[in-house]
Design a protein around this nucleic acid. Structure first.
Length: 493
RNA sequence: UCCCCAGUAGCUCAGUCGGUAGAGCAGGUGGCUGUUAACCACCGUGUCCCUGGUUCGAGUCCGGGCUGGGGAGCCA
């Protein structure tokens, strides 16, 4: 464990060891208090309380200790204010200091970005904008932030600028809210599947199956000439194939983890490293798959409204008007379902002057998706049963011999959020499709084995975590809903 | 990868006809008993993205490049 200048006492308060701050690692000596907090001993009277809990109190009154980062500070001779946040909640705690506050003079060094520890009494706030405020009895400055150098100012910054400060942007209201939403969304995913008896399985991230169906892959190499795994290996683009193996034994499973695409995609909706949820279910046909996908999205939105309404309200206020209403509408209404064939007919009949052709056999383009989900339906749309020739080998061939049991869920403003299919469970048909698409059947022997031995109908889909988060946060760029985005030419932090 | 747009102070931007740059915010100093985008006064701030060219003279015009953004493709 690294020596830290900050030590946490059993009471929960912090103090600073200046022997560690000055890097003279004296042993055994009783820890001396840091110059910023000569009175820190007294903070051991009380445990530090999270601002979320403080603001959630039924009534004011009583002493407490709060610690966090200064969002803004205002100082006059006889009164000073700190807007304090500790990440626990969207709101800040209003700290009021007076010359009677111990170490009031430290306020001259308290600026946006500083970390402080404050002891005081919680009172009803006479000011506007907050219910409670903390009347500080003492102040400790844990970490200064030179206002001439600290890049985050108490004003609006552009997302582009904050992206270059990804190590500090979590200290803004927006990014703290987004990352709390991200955490809740992840929890909501596990919640949904656990309630339905699905098992959480872990697919490998390193794979030796070239061509998992989706685009370019990152190659994995160890130092030296030899192939570390005995053959070329790559980072996975999907856990689907392995999830299928596990579903054909466990019944209903899901993976949830990072996945990697080496595509040179430069858009607000693509990452080189992103997180994907991939349920895979035995004994599910395509309609069951679509039912599950619809329930899944609705359940996630409900979960978020029930568990992190505050951050959603923040995002609605600053980033997307009408966000909550939009989410509630989606929960209430059935998703529109359209076969690919019907969809192309509607596109052709729309009277729109599309750039790309809408004849049967062509892929659905972004402009088509937007028309269907934003104009025609005005809500989520599921397109199913696509032409076989534009879809991968593992999708189940329909009785017509022309279509496969694929389905995409489109969300307004986002486009494709889910892609899935019923899997081809018939050995002969699957083998024929592998051969037809020019793939190496030997590399898929283990995959084919599941169809040779005890095969059953099964289905699954993949949902992009960041796209879901984009949708429910109202953020515009996918690079702003993952803490440290990886995109072509960019892997800082 | 293709198309379009942008790059000027710490941040957001303006900069006219080619004549060597200036606003707001942030910051500093002083003032102010309650602010919450605080307020009032004063102060400072520049590789005008890089590179080559045209010109007496380039932030401004032209070529090449880099970075960022938007759109498209690929996809989740």
């Amino acid at each position: 464990m690294l020596p830290s200048p900050f030590q946490r006492l059993s009471c929960g308060a912090f103090f600073c060891r200046d022997d560690l701050l000055s890097c003279s690692h004296e042993e055994a000596a009783p820890p001396r208090l840091n110059r910023f907090s000569p009175q820190a001993k007294e903070y051991c009277q009380m445990k530090r309380e999270k601002i979320k809990d403080i603001l959630g109190r039924q009534v004011a009154g009583g002493g407490l200790t709060a610690a966090g980062w200064v969002r803004s500070a205002r100082l006059s001779p006889n009164v000073a204010f700190i807007d304090l946040t500790d990440g626990s909640t969207a709101g800040g705690l209003q700290i009021v200091l007076s010359p009677e506050t111990k170490n009031f003079e430290l306020m001259e060094r308290v600026h946006t970005g500083c970390s402080v520890l404050v002891e005081g009494e919680l009172v009803d706030s006479p000011g506007k904008g907050q219910k409670y405020e903390l009347q500080a009895t003492s102040l400790a400055l844990l970490g200064e932030a030179d206002p001439e150098q600290y890049p985050i100012q108490k004003k609006k910054h552009t997302m582009e600028f904050l992206r270059t400060k990804a190590h500090l942007r979590v200290r803004t209201n927006t990014f703290a809210a987004v990352f709390r939403l991200r955490s809740h969304l992840s929890q909501g995913i596990h919640h949904f599947f656990r309630n339905r008896g699905f098992f959480y399985v872990h697919a490998p991230l390193i794979t030796t199956s070239d061509c998992e169906g989706a685009g370019q892959m990152f190659q994995v190499k160890a130092p030296g000439e030899q192939e570390f795994f005995g053959k070329p290996a790559w980072l996975t683009v999907s856990g689907q194939l392995e999830a299928e193996l596990l579903a054909l034994g466990l019944g209903e499973v899901y993976t949830f983890g990072p996945t990697f695409r080496a595509e040179n995609s430069n858009t607000p909706r693509h990452l080189s490293e992103f997180w994907m949820v991939e349920p895979e279910m035995a004994f599910y046909e395509l309609s069951d798959n679509m039912d599950l996908a619809e329930e899944f999205i609705k359940s996630l939105l409900s979960y978020m409204l029930n568990n992190d309404l505050e951050d959603l309200e923040f995002m609605q206020r600053w980033y997307r008007k009408g966000l909550l209403e939009q989410l509630e509408k989606i929960i209430e209404r059935p998703f529109e379902r359209l076969s690919y064939t019907e969809a192309t007919k509607q596109l052709s009949a729309s009277g729109k002057n599309f750039e790309f052709p809408t004849e049967w056999g062509n892929d659905i383009q972004t402009e088509h998706e937007r028309y269907l989900s934003e104009e025609k339906v005005g809500g989520p749309v599921i397109i199913h049963d696509y032409p076989a020739k534009i879809k991968p080998f593992y999708m189940r061939l329909g009785d017509d011999g022309q279509t496969v049991g694929a389905m995409d869920v489109l969300l307004p403003g986002i486009g494709e959020i889910i892609g899935g299919s019923q899997r081809e469970e018939r050995y002969d048909v699957l083998l024929a499709r592998i051969r037809k698409q020019g793939l190496d059947e030997a590399a898929y022997q283990w995959f084919l084995d599941t169809r040779r031995f005890g095969t059953v109908p099964h289905s699954g889909f993949g949902l992009g975590l960041e796209r879901m988060l984009l949708f429910l946060s109202g953020m515009a760029n996918i690079r702003d809903v993952i803490p440290f985005p990886r995109t072509p030419g960019n892997a800082e932090f």
